[in-house]
């Protein structure tokens, strides 16, 4: 090895060691800082690390780990044997009526204590029914229906499925890649997110509006997969004899002069076309501005107040259906 090459290698080694040592310092600082569980991004990262695992079915991406527990964003999460948040569920009794709610992190009750989630509110209002929470973070409708189709259809045997639909459910979710650095380092995941936000461009409501208009183009991949999933769910409902309710969850960034009514209308039409009932939570949340219903500042998941209102409306509509 020539002298110059040796010098270059030594410089590279010293630089790498310096970078690594400083990164360790940064990691320690971030971990201490984020120990207060107020950093929504890191809490979501912990959710993925502590409550989820890679699914055997690549179409699902990830599933909950049965029996896993974690305290995230100041709220306790317990995953039952079916891989759902909530109390344990045994074999279905002959006279038992079950409602299964399918959806994403909103249905899961991100940022909301278990006893205040929509599931718990409906269960409290309809005590003779068993209500199950099939919400999983980073699920869209295609994934929710797939998870139901391959696992919960048989294990939970619902009499009614409430498909809780959020605007992002027509977005295509690309398969995620496992990255050891991102999985284990808060510094790496934070820097990745800063870079992603920098290159992502507008993140305000008008940026969202453009985004959703593109997502709901009939030829967009996510939209087509969502409609196909609705058709599969409908076929299963007819085969098994359960009812389906589509419950529409608004985006609570801006509830006044709400810019996404076109999505609500579209989903109502899709539900009605399949003979399903349609509940629009905008009916109870629409009098608010939006951010006052957020889980914490910066986290636009509905808080306990919003879950309470949505649960009350849903229970009212479901009990009407039962009569």
């Amino acid at each position: 090895m020539s002298l110059n090459l040796r010098k270059l290698a030594a410089t590279a080694l010293v630089s790498a060691i310096t970078l690594a040592a400083t990164a360790v310092l940064g990691e320690v600082m971030l971990r201490i800082k984020n120990s207060d569980q107020r950093n929504y991004m890191i809490e979501m990262w912990r959710y993925s690390n502590e409550l989820k695992r890679v699914a055997e079915d690549p179409a699902l991406g990830h599933v909950h780990v049965p029996g896993a527990k974690a305290r995230l964003q100041g709220v306790d999460f317990v995953i039952n044997d079916l891989g759902m948040r909530g109390p344990p569920v045994g074999e279905k009794a002959a006279d038992e009526t079950r409602i299964l709610m399918l959806g994403s992190s909103i249905t899961l009750g991100w940022g909301v204590p278990e006893e205040e989630t929509m599931r718990a509110r409906v269960a409290a209002a309809l005590p003779s029914w068993t209500v199950l929470n099939g919400g999983i973070g980073n699920y869209n409708t295609a994934r929710s229906v797939r998870q139901f189709e391959t696992a919960w259809r048989r294990s939970s045997k619902p009499d009614m499925v409430v498909l809780q639909y959020f605007l992002r459910d027509a977005e295509y979710i690309p398969p995620s890649e496992d990255n050891a650095l991102m999985r284990h380092s808060q510094l790496a995941v934070t820097l990745w997110y800063i870079a992603a936000r920098f290159f992502q461009g507008r993140s305000d409501v008008s940026g969202l509006e453009d985004h959703y208009h593109r997502a709901y183009q009939p030829d967009s991949r996510g939209y087509r997969e969502m409609v196909a999933a609705l058709d599969r769910l409908n076929a299963m409902a007819q085969e098994d004899g359960f009812r389906v309710v589509l419950a529409m969850i608004p985006d609570i960034h801006q509830l006044q002069n709400y810019p996404f009514t076109f999505v609500h209308r579209r989903m109502r039409d899709l539900a009605v076309a399949r003979g399903w009932d349609f509940v629009d939570f905008m009916d109870v949340l629409g009098t608010y501005q939006g951010p006052e219903l957020w889980a914490i500042p910066g986290d636009p998941h509905p808080n306990a107040v919003a879950h309470g209102m949505m649960g009350t409306l849903l229970a009212k509509r479901l009990s009407g259906d039962s009569r």
Partner: peptide, 26 residues
């Protein structure tokens, strides 16, 4: 590298909550 890394750590420390839905899957 020390200076660059310190600057990156500062950026990470001030990264605020993003007001958007974010998810990670590993």
């Amino acid at each position: 590298p020390l200076s660059v890394m310190l600057a990156l750590i500062c950026a990470a420390l001030v990264a605020d909550n993003p007001s958007a839905f974010i998810y990670f899957d590993f």
